[in-house]
Every structure is written in structure tokens, then in C-alpha cells.
């Protein structure tokens, strides 16, 4: 079994590449059960009064788009069906608002929603914690009064009656957490806790363990747990998309890695030198 321990890693990589490639071309369509976390997320959004304002904290970057964008896409479907108004923003991740808006644009087009009326990209505005805090005091100052493309916000119908991020104006914050800043160090302590606006979170699979204690303590009202959570959410809102498509790949990859671990351990046990 020594061969198994000395195996060239490139074989391991080649096989996972082939496995995932095959299920992308021929999906298995394994059934997806809905976890309590995702159901809670869906119910929290569904319970909002029609036409409420939601701040979408796009704290993510290109690397995490595979897991985060399906969440935002599914959220846009549920939100627009309830006529919620979406305000996309971030003060720490330069590309997050731009990437999120590209997805919301597509859903809005499909559902007949208008930019500046039903949703707006307040853009990436530098300043991190200073700017997040400033939002709770003066939104126009935090955004410099313009959207991502430099258009004046005061001319947009969606901005009428919006002075700052507070409980009277916003019903929910949907913040992402993939690193710093994120839900744990920006949306929760700087926005949700000082204002009392409920916070729901979307996170990548890798960050789920770190975020779980905040959900358990009730500091997050709900959370989407990585790609699996996004897939369940897509199923709940009735718009299957990229996250559901990823699940077959995740299933086979999990099986493959499990088999590798078993093989490596058999090889290790059978080849190790026994003590004299």
C-alpha cells in the first residue's frame, strides 16, 4: 500500500476535476432537505410588512461570489415579490455592491422592478467602520450623496424619507460575512445593535462555524449557511439556480474526499512500522 502514500497529488486533483465536471454536465438531481436555519431565514423575510426597506450589506468579493451571489439572487426574488425596497451598500469591500447589483438587476428586469424606485446601489464608499457608523447618523454623508455610478441620490424616489439607517426607516439588514469587515464586526456591532434593526446573515461555508454562536445567541435573526443554505433558499423561493446546481458537485466531492481519507488511513496503518 506504500503506493497510496506516495501517490502524485496531481492524480488526486485530476479526479476531483473530472468528477465535478461530469456532474455539471449531467446533474444527479439529489433531493435537498430544508434545514431549520434556512427556513428561519425565509420566514423572517416573509414576515416583513410589504414595502419595507432592507439594507443589503454586500461585504464580499469575487472569490466568494459562487456562494454569496445565489443567496442575493434568491433574496431578490423573495424581496421583490413582497415589494421590499433594497439598498445595496458596503464600506469595506470594493467590489461587493457592484457584484450584488449585477444579480439584482437581472431579477429586477424579470420582475418589472426599477432602479432608483425599488432598489439602489449606494455603492462602495471607503472608510470601513467610520462609514458604517456614519450611516446610522447621516446616510447622505456616508454615501457622499451619490450612488455607485455617481448619480445623485436625492433625485431618486427610493431615497425619499430616508435620512439615516435607523429602526423607523429600515426593517431589516441582510449582511454578508466572508471576512473582515463582515457581519460579526460591522453589520452586528455598528449597525444592528446600535439601531435595533434585526440582522439576517449570509455566509460562506468556511465561515459558518465562526458565525454559528451569533445565531444561537439570537444576535442574528437568521442565517444562510454557505452554498447548501443558498440551495435550500433557492428551493424555498421557488427559483432554482446556481446553488442547487452546485450541490451535486458538493455531494460527489464529499464522497470522494471521504474515500480518500479511508484509503490513506488503510495505507498508513498497513505500512507503518510496528514497535519492536
Amino acid at each position: 500500500m506504500q503506493w497510496a502514500l506516495d501517490i502524485d497529488r496531481r492524480w488526486i486533483w485530476a479526479i476531483i476535476f473530472i468528477i465535478i465536471g461530469i456532474v455539471i454536465i449531467h446533474p444527479l438531481g439529489l433531493p435537498i432537505t430544508i434545514s431549520p436555519d434556512t427556513q428561519q431565514f425565509y420566514d423572517t423575510v416573509q414576515a416583513l410588512p410589504d414595502g419595507s426597506r432592507v439594507l443589503v450589506g454586500a461585504s464580499f468579493d469575487v472569490g466568494a461570489q459562487g456562494e454569496i451571489l445565489p443567496m442575493i439572487r434568491a433574496f431578490a426574488y423573495q424581496a421583490f415579490a413582497k415589494n421590499l425596497k433594497l439598498y445595496i451598500f458596503d464600506a469595506g469591500w470594493t467590489n461587493g455592491p457592484k457584484l450584488a447589483t449585477q444579480v439584482v438587476d437581472q431579477v429586477a428586469k424579470e420582475m418589472g422592478k426599477q432602479y432608483g424606485v425599488d432598489y439602489v446601489n449606494l455603492g462602495y464608499k471607503p472608510g470601513s467602520s467610520t462609514t458604517y457608523t456614519l450611516m446610522t447618523q447621516d446616510l447622505m454623508a456616508a454615501t457622499k450623496g451619490v450612488d455607485q455610478n455617481g448619480k445623485s441620490l436625492s433625485d431618486m424616489p427610493i431615497m425619499q424619507g430616508v435620512q439615516k439607517v435607523d429602526k423607523d426607516t429600515f426593517a431589516l439588514v441582510f449582511g454578508m460575512d466572508i471576512g473582515t469587515p463582515g457581519a460579526t464586526d460591522a453589520w452586528l456591532p455598528l449597525i444592528s445593535q446600535p439601531t435595533g434593526i434585526p440582522l439576517v446573515v449570509g455566509t460562506i461555508t468556511m465561515s459558518v462555524p465562526t458565525n454559528k454562536p451569533f445565531l444561537a445567541a439570537g444576535q442574528y435573526k437568521a442565517m444562510l449557511d454557505g452554498s447548501r443554505g443558498a440551495a435550500e433558499y433557492e428551493a424555498l423561493v421557488g427559483h432554482p439556480g446556481p446553488a442547487i446546481a452546485q450541490q451535486d458537485g458538493a455531494s460527489l466531492a464529499a464522497m470522494y474526499v471521504t474515500l480518500l481519507i479511508i484509503l490513506a488511513n488503510i495505507a498508513w496503518v498497513t505500512t507503518r512500522k510496528k514497535p519492536a
Binding site: 432537505t33 447548501r228 458538493a250 455531494s251 464529499a254 464522497m255 471521504t258
Partner: peptide, 8 residues
């Protein structure tokens, strides 16, 4: 790993 994927 297996539990967070549908295969579990």
C-alpha cells in the same frame, strides 16, 4: 462533509 451535502 457528508452531512452538509445532500448525499448524506
Amino acid at each position: 462533509m457528508m452531512g452538509t451535502a445532500p448525499i448524506g
